[in-house]
Amino acid sequence: MASTAGETSSSSSPRSWKHHVFLSFRGEDTRNGFISHLYASLRSKGIISYKDDNNLSTGDDISDELLKAIEESMFAVIVISPNYASSPWCLDELCKILECKNNLGQRIVPVFYDMEPSDVRHLKETFGEAFRKHESRLGEESDKVRRWRDALTEVAGYSGCCSKNR
Rank of each mutant, 00 (worst) to 15 (best):
C100K: 02
G59N: 00
S16W: 09
D143F: 07
L138W: 09
N55M: 12
D60C: 01
S12I: 14
E125Y: 10
G59R: 07
H20A: 10
A151R: 02
S49G: 04
P117M: 10
F75C: 01
E135M: 13
H20S: 03
H134D: 00
N103V: 03
V145R: 07
L138A: 03
R121N: 06
I70R: 00
R146L: 06
F25P: 00
S16Q: 15
R43K: 14
K101L: 04
P82Y: 09
D143K: 10
F34C: 01
L138H: 11
S163F: 02
N102Q: 12
G46M: 05
S9P: 05
L42E: 08
H122R: 14
R166D: 12
A5N: 09
A85C: 07
D119P: 01
W17A: 09
L104N: 10
R147Q: 09
S136H: 10
C95N: 07
S3A: 13
S16C: 13
E65D: 15
T153E: 12
A76S: 15
G6V: 04
F25I: 02
S11C: 11
C95A: 13
Y158D: 05
S12L: 09
N54S: 10
L138S: 07
N103M: 05
G157P: 02
G6E: 08
A130Y: 03
I47Q: 01
W17M: 11
G105E: 04
N102M: 12
E7L: 13
I47D: 11
S118K: 13
D53C: 14
E7R: 12
C162G: 06
E72R: 06
K45R: 15
D150M: 04
T153M: 09
K96Y: 05
P88C: 07
W89P: 02
Y113N: 05
S24I: 04
D29W: 04
T30M: 04
D29C: 06
S81Y: 06
S3Y: 06
S163H: 03
K68T: 09
M115I: 05
K101A: 01
P14R: 15
P14F: 14
